[in-house]
Simulated assay, not measured.
Amino acid sequence: MYETLEIDIDKGIATVWMNRPDVHNAFNTQLIAELTEACQELDADDAVRVVVLGGRGKSFSAGADLNWMKAAGEAGEADNFADAMKLAGMLRTLAELRKPTIARVHGAALGGGMGLASACDLCVAGEQAVFATSEVRLGIIPAAIGPYVLRAIGARQALRYFQSAERIDAARAVHIGLVHECVATEELDAKVAEIARALLQGGPRAQAEAKELIAAVANRPLSDALVEDTARRIARLRATPEAREGLGAFLEKRPPAWVSKV
């Protein structure tokens, strides 16, 4: 179905491989469109519980395709805005998936590639991975990826890296909050599989609601309204079939239905 992607689905885990290895999985119009469509399809597939994003070849993603960027530089503002909105829409679609997402990063994750890693819920990187928001060295800014990178590393770190475009090695990426786990490259798939299996133990609706909870409470001041909102969220979920199944399975010392279906 896709020319720039390969998708493998096994036991509830969908792995989306960006497949433009000759250009280090750099973005172009087609990859952006196909990745948007793939995310929408996987989000609608109840058999898919976890989505992993990786890259074929030597790199996760080197950011924007040079030919695409050259064409953008020769286009007017209106055309550039349309292209930027497609990229921003793809990143938002990935970030707002109602199921857990894992970035599997090896090699380069530069510019938009770092944006993809940040838009996923979790990031697991090989020890040779390298990240950068390199846009200022091209006279532009990491605008579309900005909300996701800021969410991952915070404004203070972004003030440095958005302006310096320094390369960030995997160990440093862990330190600043961009990467959750850094492992030897040959152990990358095993670590991703380990985390994916852990994610499969959670209730699918509960995980979707957990993502919404974080979005609702992050960086908000504690207030009566916020406390009431959190209470309403748990009260609503306690009455769902998924919650009743989860509690019943715990008391009966058996796996819940969502685990046995995988």
Rank of each mutant, 00 (worst) to 15 (best):
Y161S: 11
R104D: 10
E245F: 02
E212Q: 14
A117I: 05
G146V: 08
T93Y: 03
G12V: 01
I7V: 11
T4Q: 15
T185I: 03
A218F: 00
L42R: 15
C39Y: 10
A75I: 04
G57I: 01
I9F: 08
R238Y: 15
R156Q: 14
P142T: 06
Q201T: 12
G112R: 02
D45V: 02
L251K: 07
G112T: 08
S260W: 03
A243F: 12
R167T: 11
D121Y: 07
N19L: 00
R156H: 15
D8L: 00
A239P: 14
A190N: 04
E187D: 14
R236N: 10
G63V: 05
V227H: 11
W68C: 11
P221F: 05
V217H: 08
A33V: 05
A239R: 15
H24G: 04
A184Y: 09
Q201S: 09
V130K: 13
E228I: 07
L42G: 10
L91D: 00
N219C: 07
A119T: 03
H175A: 09
K191Y: 08
V105P: 00
E187N: 14
R233T: 08
T230P: 10
K70G: 02
A62F: 06
N25W: 00
R160D: 07
L247G: 08
L222Q: 04
D10C: 05
D22V: 04
E74F: 14
G73W: 03
A71R: 15
F250T: 13
A129P: 04
P21F: 09
T93L: 06
A208I: 10
P255S: 14
D224E: 07
A103G: 10
Y148N: 07
E127K: 02
D43H: 02
L251V: 10
E34N: 05
K261Q: 14
G107C: 13
I140P: 04
A210M: 12
L199V: 05
V259H: 03
E37G: 01
Q201N: 07
R92Q: 11
D189W: 02
S59D: 09
L226Q: 11
A173D: 08
E127T: 05
G76A: 09
V16Q: 00
I13S: 00
P255E: 15
A216Y: 10
C123V: 12
C120M: 14
A84T: 06
Q157S: 11
A196P: 04
A132S: 13
G73L: 09
L199S: 01
G146T: 10
R205F: 10
E127V: 02
I176A: 15
R160M: 04
V130F: 14
A239Q: 14
I145H: 01
S59W: 00
M18L: 12
G246Y: 01
L251A: 15
Q30P: 08
A33R: 09
A208W: 14
D83W: 07
K253A: 12
A117W: 02
L110Y: 06
A26K: 08
S134F: 10
L116K: 01
I195W: 15
T185P: 02
D79P: 01
G115E: 02
M90Y: 05
I214E: 05
G63Y: 00
L199C: 09
G154T: 06
L200K: 00
R56K: 13
A184I: 02
D224Q: 12
A243M: 10
R137N: 06
L94F: 03
L122F: 15
G54N: 04
T29A: 14
Q157H: 12
P256F: 13
M114Y: 03
M18Q: 05
V105R: 01
Q128F: 15
E74G: 05
M85C: 10
G177Y: 15
